[in-house]
Design a protein around this nucleic acid. Structure first.
Lengths: 332, 332
DNA sequence: TACCTGTCTGACAACGTTGTCCGATCGAGG
DNA sequence: CCTCGATCGGACAACGTTGTCAGACAGGTA
């Protein structure tokens, strides 16, 4: 492998000079610079990032610990964060937490060993979970995305409560009185917030809260499918469904298809997360669209600014999602 | 940051010893090992991968240059490759080529600068494109995935020709005589292979090839949507459609919905790529399912074995996809 | 005692950069 | 002719590991 020393020798200068022309870190006379640059081209020199990182104690890399495979919304979020990090000069090291606490702490440690400059995390656990404790103990610059765990950590997520309330109220306004919630996995910050929003919506619509109408979809398609099937075949089945993420929407749709139930005729459906194919369903899905680009942008901004000033007060930002009105709710 | 020297001092041993207990690279007396391990715990030492990489000239990392955001099948492939690489002791550095030649060579260079031990690439360009030339020139261990560019490089992909022929023949057997092809982007190896398969299927069914029945979907939903819309509103519209990837299937479905055409009544549809929601469409999509796990596994195996023996002859493997028979073809 | 054979651990030179400190050279001003 | 800045480039010590080469020590044998 060609090193700076090889280039230096060929150019007849020192390695310092080569380093400085590569990085532009100090003025080098035009003529010398040209000689060096041509030596770089001639030798096909490729800069060794590893050595640079060791010398500068910086990798220009952010770790992203998230579970994009269990969650299509997260997959889009990864793309958004990547798009935001690149222009800021950072590469992403993506690690899949599989939404599992044990795996989460393992990938967080792995990211730290690789000396990423900062970590973006969609946490499975809360502030007092091992991952967050680890990150805080070692002072790893961190920002939480999507799932806002609370505590003195930078975080950015969607405003979940009001949005879910809106979904619920919308069904109520259409005359539904038995509105069920397909709830996300216990422990995720988003699940609690969306359930709170559901209750708020019910209250605002003057509807009573019935615990039997809340089923646990565990944030997965499979669990949601069976939970919804059970819900709809039991007595006192609801006429409206509020589903709280895209995976569970798929499960819900599967259950509905299996039971040969028509949407919105037999049961109206509204959901959290608008995904690419949502408008291909018949009828088209009424949904809450999260501002994914904005979340990605804000998260990266936050991390970059924390690196610049570690003394900053931890910030928590909530971005507003968009209500996408289509037909699965029963509106034309 | 805590270093091995700190741990060594605390344990009252040398850094060599610490290194050897960390890596298990030579025998260390039980008692000493325990002292070191407790010092590691007490100090909260985190191994510095950067320094290790510099010393060993190995990063235990594979670069994966692919475009998972423009392609859901690729997104699954990323997960499959990750799942295969992890147990082999490798981390993935994922870089998005955006299916753009300029971006592709840029990310390939970036991956090389980061000194990944090998590269897995779904190439946009061919063997004589800049990326592949670069990789061969610098002797970077490389395996091509999905798009088999040919040439003396390791590669693994799906058997595209026979599979597409089968799709085409299936429609022919159902009585269709005007079968159109929604073709992928020019230049991708897969596009050419699938088009060849379509022609083969036609030939086997005794049907003539009509160039007007081949439209360019450019491997994207948008292009496919307008191409299919144009195709179906023109004179002599086909009664059967062979769509050659998942993105274009979405575009096709959109066009069909827009034109209020029924599947399979007005037009039968069969497609390459089976995706998660394919069974949620009404009717359910008849499709070719690529063996994604196997491709990921094989690709990683190949790269690992090439690392072990750089003198190996380049290998090219094709894996057989599965025909998933549902209803969009008109059966049932 | 002298020597040998294991067994265990320590010193130290890599690895390929960066950045600081210092020295060389040159032109201008006195 | 000498001095003084200004301008430019080189030497070299980090950075935190790994792995080789040796050395220390204990116990056994002659």
């Amino acid at each position: 492998m060609i090193t700076m020393a090889d280039v230096a020798q060929r150019a007849g200068v020192s390695v310092s000079t080569v380093s400085h022309v590569v990085n532009g870190t100090r003025f080098v006379k035009e003529a010398t610079r040209e000689v060096v640059q041509r030596a770089i081209r001639d030798t096909g020199y490729s800069h060794n990032t590893i050595a640079r990182s060791l010398a500068t104690a910086s990798t220009q890399t952010f770790g992203l610990a998230i579970s994009p495979v269990t969650n299509t919304y997260f997959a889009q979020l990864v793309a958004a964060i990547d798009a935001a990090a690149r222009p800021a000069g950072y590469t992403l090291l993506i690690a899949d937490t599989h939404d599992d606490p044990d795996e989460e702490i393992r990938v967080v440690r792995a990211l730290h060993r690789r000396r990423v400059d900062g970590i973006l995390l969609a946490p499975v656990t809360g502030v007092d979970g091992p991952s967050l404790r680890y990150l805080m103990e070692f002072g790893v610059p961190t920002v939480l995305v999507d799932r806002c765990a609370g505590g003195p950590i930078d975080q950015v997520g969607t405003e979940n409560r009001l949005a879910t309330a809106k979904l619920t109220q919308h069904l109520a306004e259409l005359g539904h009185t038995r509105i069920a919630l397909v709830s996300g996995r216990k422990g995720f910050a988003t699940s609690a917030e969306r359930e709170a929003g559901y209750r708020l919506g019910l209250r605002r619509a003057g509807l009573p809260f019935d615990p039997d109408l809340v089923v646990d979809g565990e944030s997965s398609a499979e669990a949601a499918e069976s939970a919804v099937a059970r819900l709809l075949t039991a007595g006192g089945a609801p006429t409206g469904l509020v589903v709280t993420n895209d995976r569970m929407t798929i499960g819900t749709m599967r259950a509905l298809a299996r039971l040969q139930l028509q949407v919105p005729g037999d049961v109206a459906v509204v959901a959290f997360d608008d995904f690419e194919w949502a408008d291909l369903f018949r009828p088209r899905l009424t949904a809450i669209a999260q501002p994914i680009e904005e979340i990605g942008r804000r998260a990266v901004d936050m991390l970059v600014s924390r690196l610049a000033d570690p003394a900053l007060q931890p910030r928590s930002v909530r971005v507003s999602p968009r209500f996408v009105h289509r037909n699965s709710c029963g509106c034309e």
